[in-house]
Structures are given as C-alpha cells and as structure tokens.
Design a protein around this nucleic acid. Structure first.
Length: 119
DNA sequence: CCTATGACAGACA
DNA sequence: GTGTCTGCCATAG
C-alpha cells in the first residue's frame, strides 16, 4: 500500500501546466518498472481521491485514454491548464514534462541500459 | 498458492 | 505511422 500512496502523492505534486508519464511516476515512487501499477491506481481511484489525473500521460507523450472514454475530457483539462495538446492527443514532452530533481533515477537508467542491450 | 486485471513501455517488423 | 509481442508487478479475489 505504500507504493500506491507514494504514487498518489506524486501525482498530486505535478504542477499545473506540466505532465508526467506513467513510468516517471513509478520511478519516482521507487519502482521504475511499475508503470502498470500507476495505471491501475488511476483507473481505480482518480475520482475517489481527487487526483489531477489529466497530468499523467504515456511515455510517448500521448493521451492514453481511448476516444469516447475520457480522451476529450483529458485534452480539455490539459488545454485549460496551458498544455498544448495536438488533435491526435500528443503533448511535447520536451516542453511540458515535469522534471523534478533526481529524475530520471540511476536505477531507471540502468534498467533501460540493460533492456537496450547492455552497452 | 493461483489467476486476472491494469489509462504501461520498449523492441521490432 | 501501425500492430504484435514480451516483460513487468502491485493488488484483489
């Protein structure tokens, strides 16, 4: 339950006008491979816990919600906060990604390096 | 113990 | 750009 609580706190810490990715939240919460858990938390309790869920998007910089089930709502909320969202639901991470100190973590980088082929 | 779920991520064709 | 496949793991039942 601790991981879940950290995830919620982190999501609440994303400033207006910025976005974070699922993997980023997971890494900051201490589990750099827990992106799916972040998705689960959002799905289960974004309403209940009043999270700024619109600020969490995929690592490719896109809205993950399907059209017809939240896509338009998320886009509307983000644009309302000053985040530019393309028609396809893309956000420029270089401009809008939240970058707290210490991200990305060395653990995450190592994992990625191993995935990419141990170079 | 097991299985299912989850708004994922990365590699590759 | 699309689609598929694999790895990942906390949580609920």
């Amino acid at each position: 339950m601790e991981f879940e609580d950290r995830v919620k706190d982190l999501i609440r810490a994303i400033p207006r006008g910025k976005v974070a990715t699922y993997a980023q939240i997971a890494a900051l919460a201490g589990n750099y491979r827990g992106a799916r858990q972040v998705a689960r938390v959002l799905h289960a309790s974004s309403d209940k816990d009043r999270l700024p869920w619109q600020r969490v998007i995929s690592s490719r910089g896109a809205i993950s919600l399907p059209r017809g089930r939240g896509f338009a709502e998320q886009k509307r909320r983000l644009v309302g906060e000053g985040v530019a969202v393309s028609r396809a639901g893309r956000v420029d991470l270089a401009r809008f990604q939240w970058e707290p100190p210490g991200f990305p973590s060395t653990a995450a980088r190592e994992y990625l390096r191993r995935l990419t082929g141990e170079r």
